[in-house]
Design a protein around this nucleic acid. Structure first.
Lengths: 96, 96
DNA sequence: TTGGTATTTAGAATTATTTCTAAATACTAT
DNA sequence: ATAGTATTTAGAAATAATTCTAAATACCAA
């Protein structure tokens, strides 16, 4: 999975807003873009980063591309954080 | 708090490794640096970013600066993620 | 096929991030 | 006060990220 990619994806405000939009359900690239004051090319760039981070996946239908939240990837990030919060365990090896 | 700053801080591998080191308890800047193959100046730069993101706080003693995890900031990130996932915020679980 | 809509890719400009060296600051101890 | 240790700051170089315009791809409909 790669936490670097995942946290990097989450570190951009536009991308976090895209994820929040997708809480309501899947949405086409165009509809996502209509919520922002940026070109479709830029939105496509951000969607690509979210997809590479596995935070969303896409479904192609007709000539639309729909994006949807990948809940389980979010769960993995939460696990990493909860482990960070947890009590120190001797000898435990952590992956960054 | 600012999630942009927080996720940006978490998006760098060195900084995530620093946080994992700090699970064991507070550590001076120098000791943190000794775990990495980078100059003290670079470590200081990363510590500054973690501090601005509120992920760590510092305690000055003698001529050492100790850094410590800020657990509650990690909790806030987890809340944001759990909200994205659509989980109930309390223990309240609604059943039909 | 031709044209239209949806989306992505390529390339370039701008800005941000990471890292270093060198210098500065802060504190300790003699 | 002087020297020594710990850490940060400043400035510069290299790399990465974000955004745009223009062009390309993909798919549908007549």
């Amino acid at each position: 999975m790669g936490f670097a990619e995942t946290f990097k994806a989450l570190s951009d405000t536009v991308r976090r807003e895209i994820l929040i939009l997708l809480r309501q359900g899947r949405m086409s690239a165009g509809e996502i873009g209509s919520h922002f004051n940026m070109t479709g090319a830029t939105i496509s760039y951000h969607l690509g980063i979210l997809k590479k981070a596995d935070l969303v996946y896409e479904q192609r239908e007709k000539n639309f591309v729909y994006y949807e939240l990948n809940i389980s990837a979010i769960g993995e990030v939460m696990l990493w954080l909860s482990d960070l919060k947890g009590e120190p365990k001797d000898g435990k090896i952590e992956k960054a």
